[in-house]
Structure formats: C-alpha cells, structure tokens
C-alpha cells in the first residue's frame, strides 16, 4: 500500500525482496546500493545479521522528485529467508507495493524455492495482498555456479505465469541485478501510474520513472 500524503506531496513505495534462505536477497540489495545512482539514494541499512544471514531485514531508500515537486520514495527491503523468521517476513511484507522474488538456481535448491514461493503466497494472503495483482519480478540468482538448472528449462516452466520472462542473475558479480530491478520498476509503474496519475499529475512518465530510479553509476556520470 503506497503511502501517499498529498499535503506534503509525498509518495512512498515499498519493494520487498523475498525468497528462500541464502538465495542472495541481501546481495541484490548491496549491489543495488553500490551500482545504482538514482536521483536520491540513502544509506543501506543492514540490520542484525548472524553469519551473513539476515535476522531482521535490510533496507535501502532511494527517491526522485517529479516536475510537480512530488517527493517519490522507494524503500527496498529484504526479508530473512530462514524458515523460522516467518513473523518477521510477514511484518516486512505487509503493505508492500511490489515484490522481487529471488530464487536460487542450484538444482538442489528447487524445493526450497517452491516452499518459499508458497510461503510468499500465503503471507501475501495474510497481509491482505493478492499475488496475482501485485507487481512482481522473479529472479533466478547464482547463474555463475555449476550445476544450476538450465535457463531454457526454467523459462519454459514459468512461461505460463504472469511473471515470465524470468530474470537471470549473478548477484555476487553484480550481473542481472539492475535488469531485474528495471523489470520490477516497469511493472510497478503501471500500477502506481494508474492510482496516482504519475504521468498526468506529476510529469513522471514510465521511462523517467525507470531511468531515474535505476540509473547505474557509470551511466549517470557519463
């Protein structure tokens, strides 16, 4: 649920990185933090971790200003993937405007992916959101590892879903992270523009929205 306050002309959106434990959600966020150079970028807050594993969540705020002076913020969150932190996952997921599902490409992790996806569906339901109408991008991470499930096979499996085509990534090496994020921004824009008339009321068209929020550091400098 977007947090819109017309008096302050502010719109805050929430994007949640979801997925099984160790699939690379935090890595995605850390990469976005270092690779992105959006109009505005806050600090990456990595809350408690133990052995590199998220206990609470990570958060990165980014933002842009529209022609109307609209102060648009995007808060990017990761959830803890470990099964036992379900109540935290649910709390972080509540009021989400969009979800990036980070799956692990390794063949042995497919069951975990499925379980986590089921858990996402269930928790969305619990916090009053609908998986079919929520903007979402699905990323298969760790493509650099040997023994991953083939690209074509994965694409074919997901072909019939609203989330095709899948995004392939190697977050550790910064590959596919921004692409995934852009796909998400594209889907998110459709929903947000419909509700808040970003284009007509605030002069933010789809291209601006995506470009400004996902500008890569080098591109920006160039």
């Amino acid at each position: 649920m977007a947090d819109h306050s017309p008096e302050e002309n502010r719109l805050a959106l929430k994007v949640v990185f979801y997925g099984p434990a160790l699939s690379g959600k935090t890595t995605n966020l850390m990469q976005l933090h270092s690779l992105l150079n959006p109009q505005r970028k806050g600090e990456l807050m990595v809350l408690e971790t133990r052995d590199d594993r998220t206990l609470f969540f990570d958060m990165l705020p980014i933002g842009l200003k529209g022609d109307s002076g609209l102060d648009l913020r995007l808060k990017l969150y990761t959830v803890p993937g470990q099964v036992q932190h379900d109540s935290t996952r649910k709390a972080v997921l509540s009021r989400a405007d969009a979800v990036v599902f980070v799956a692990d490409s390794q063949a042995g992790q497919q069951d975990n992916n499925a379980t986590a996806f089921g858990n996402l569906e269930e928790n969305l339901d619990k916090v009053g959101l609908d998986i079919d109408s929520l903007p979402m991008a699905v990323q298969f991470n760790k493509r650099d590892l040997p023994g991953v499930v083939g690209d074509a096979e994965l694409q074919q499996r997901w072909a019939g879903t609203p989330w095709a085509p899948l995004q392939m990534a190697s977050a550790l090496h910064g590959k596919g992270v921004i692409d995934t994020f852009r796909v998400l921004l594209d889907r998110l824009y459709t929903e947000v523009d419909r509700e808040f008339a970003l284009h007509t009321d605030h002069g933010i068209d789809r291209d601006t929205f995506i470009r400004q929020l996902s500008a890569a550091s080098e591109e920006n400098r160039a």
């Binding site: 600090e43 807050m45 809350l47 408690e48 609470f56 969540f57 958060m59 109540s87 935290t88 649910k90 709390a91 972080v92």
Partner: peptide
C-alpha cells in the same frame, strides 16, 4: 542517527511482530 535508527527500526519491528503474533 543511522545507528540510533537501526536500533529503533529493529525494536519497532520486534514490537510489531510480537503484537501480530
């Protein structure tokens, strides 16, 4: 502020989840 806020966020989250549970 960053560290204070981190603590606050974690504490609030904890409070929220406890309450939700």
């Amino acid at each position: 502020m960053m560290f204070i806020a981190k603590y606050r966020l974690a504490a609030n989250l904890h409070h929220d989840t406890t309450e939700a549970s």
